[in-house]
Design a protein around this nucleic acid. Structure first.
Length: 457
RNA sequence: GCCCCCAUGGUCUAGCGGUUAGGACGCCUGCCUUUCACGCAGGAAAUCACCGGUUCGAAUCCGGUUGGGGGUACCA
């Protein structure tokens, strides 16, 4: 089995494109990839016949996104633009065989033709000495697309226009170039977005004119945004680069994207890349377009995040935030975050001091008894020995008991004093990480702030 | 306009002629609990787009309608 992935080299790897890449990869690495059990081959191709968009920067961005997802390829990247000679050769052959002809017919001419012959009648031109090259489509029969996902679809040849396969200057057009490239690369399975389904008969016709074997095709449903329209930047993250910046894990993105449109087991949906490859069945891929739901991705991300373990999560968070020495903070917050981006807002106070939020401060410490609770907590903490989790916890719980208060009435003021915000990791763990000196200093600071010595009235 | 694809709770899906239509996300309630989460236990939410046909029996098969999507470039 030889499969190929051909991202459009605009720089951003669109989420839909990422899914296509993933499915190709899963196909190549799945159990059915070859009869002898060896892995199939994945060819990466940069499709850009005129080489305007495939700048080295754009291509590198795509490659980088693919690597981040954990996807690799066996051959390529092959640049379509560098195969111009072969395309020209194939074009000459078609012209010589009479399977293609030159024509100066324009879009208007095509419309006029249809006005005369009926809207469903495909355009047929007359050979001329110059102009663009059109493929001659037979008038009879139909071109059958045997899609692995959708089954057979017949396109009656009468309905098909003679497609332009090369510009007047001889440069090849997409539908011609891909067919040649797939042929030369020995591609056995073409897996791509559904937007190419209507292009397939054209490519089949090219291959047929060349008397070449055709690959199997599989067209994936498109990805939509919450409004039902094609997924784009308007919907938030639309590319894997954006997902990466938003703090998602490649493991979770792979998992979620694979599920989006493929029915795996009915009862399970948490999978690693290897597990996905093991279970992936192309013919089971869904036929309907899917809506990308970032909330579910978030949920899966949290699961994968917790699966990493504290050491690995720390490594990723240090990379993500550009900070080091995060391990203790990670240990006390890993249960509470869903993305890498959630981490810093939750624990920045540990490193940078309490967050400054006057309204929240007033709300918590302005409450009756809040200052008394804080003072009592400070006293209790002062004598904890050793200054570690068990002692801290019993000291604070002792305060709650002595005051006859509810736990929150003591813990929230302490939390506010230490973090400056109402949300933080567990209070005992936070105190332990901060240490006695820092904890006491922050409590003092908060008490001072809540009760100015002389407040100007 | 023409050609093509698609249609199960809000979302992703399981289902492949006989099910109380299953699961996940989200939402709600409770438990846990120091906050937020995590976890656990429940719950609401689907006339299986509509109409007709085949059948003893249809979410499942067939046709039509409607709706959505794609293509229709000397773009990819």
């Amino acid at each position: 089995m030889r499969v190929r992935f051909a991202p459009s080299p605009t720089g951003a790897l669109h989420i839909g494109g990422a899914r296509t890449a993933l499915y190709n990869w899963l196909l190549a690495h799945g159990p059915g990839s070859s009869p002898d059990g060896r892995a199939g081959t994945l060819v990466l191709r940069i499709e850009d016949t005129d080489r305007e968009r495939s700048t080295p920067e754009n291509v590198e961005q795509i490659l980088d996104a693919l690597r981040w997802l954990g996807l690799d390829w066996d051959e390529g990247p092959i640049f379509q633009s560098q195969r111009a000679e072969r395309h020209r050769e194939a074009l000459e052959q078609l012209l010589a065989d009479g399977h293609a002809y030159r024509s100066t017919a324009t879009g208007d001419d095509v419309r006029e033709y249809k006005a005369r012959h009926g809207a469903e009648r495909g355009f047929r031109g007359e050979p001329e000495s110059s102009g663009a090259v059109r493929l001659r489509v037979p008038d009879d029969g139909e071109t059958l697309v045997d899609d692995v996902i959708r089954g057979q679809t017949g396109f009656p040849n009468v309905n098909l226009d003679d497609p332009v396969i090369a510009r007047a200057d001889g440069s090849p057009l997409y539908n011609f170039a891909v067919a040649i490239d797939d042929l030369d690369a020995g591609i056995t399975h073409v897996v791509r977005g559904e937007d190419h389904l209507s292009n397939t008969p054209k490519q089949l016709l090219v291959l047929e004119a060349l008397r070449a074997d055709t690959p199997r095709y599989a067209h994936l449903p498109l990805l939509h945004g919450p409004d039902g329209r094609k997924l784009s930047k308007r919907h938030g993250a639309a590319s894997v680069q954006e997902l990466r910046e938003a703090g998602y894990l490649p493991e979770a993105v792979d998992n979620y994207i694979a599920l989006l449109g493929a029915g795996f087991a009915a009862d399970e949906e948490h999978f690693s890349l290897a597990e996905l490859a093991d279970r992936f069945r192309l013919e089971r891929v869904s036929k309907n377009p899917a809506v990308f739901d970032e909330r579910k991705l978030r949920h899966m991300n949290g699961q994968h995040l917790r699966e990493l373990g504290t050491d690995e999560l720390t490594r990723r968070l240090e990379q993500f935030t550009g900070r080091s020495g995060l391990r203790d903070a990670v240990a006390i917050s890993e249960e509470k975050i869903q993305t890498l981006a959630d981490f810093w807002p939750l624990v920045s106070f540990v490193f940078d001091g309490p967050v400054d939020d006057p309204a929240a401060f007033e709300r918590v410490l302005g409450k009756d008894g809040a200052l008394d609770a804080l003072r009592a907590a400070r006293e209790a903490l002062e004598s904890v020995e050793p200054f570690a989790l068990p002692g801290i916890e019993s000291a604070l719980r002792g305060v709650v008991e002595r005051l006859g208060a509810k736990a929150g009435q003591v813990f929230q003021p302490v939390r506010m004093a230490l973090a400056g915000q109402t949300v933080s990791p567990g209070i005992f763990e936070t105190i332990a990480v901060l240490g006695r000196e820092e904890t006491l200093a922050r409590i003092d600071q908060a008490m001072q702030r809540a009760q100015p010595v002389d407040s100007p009235s």
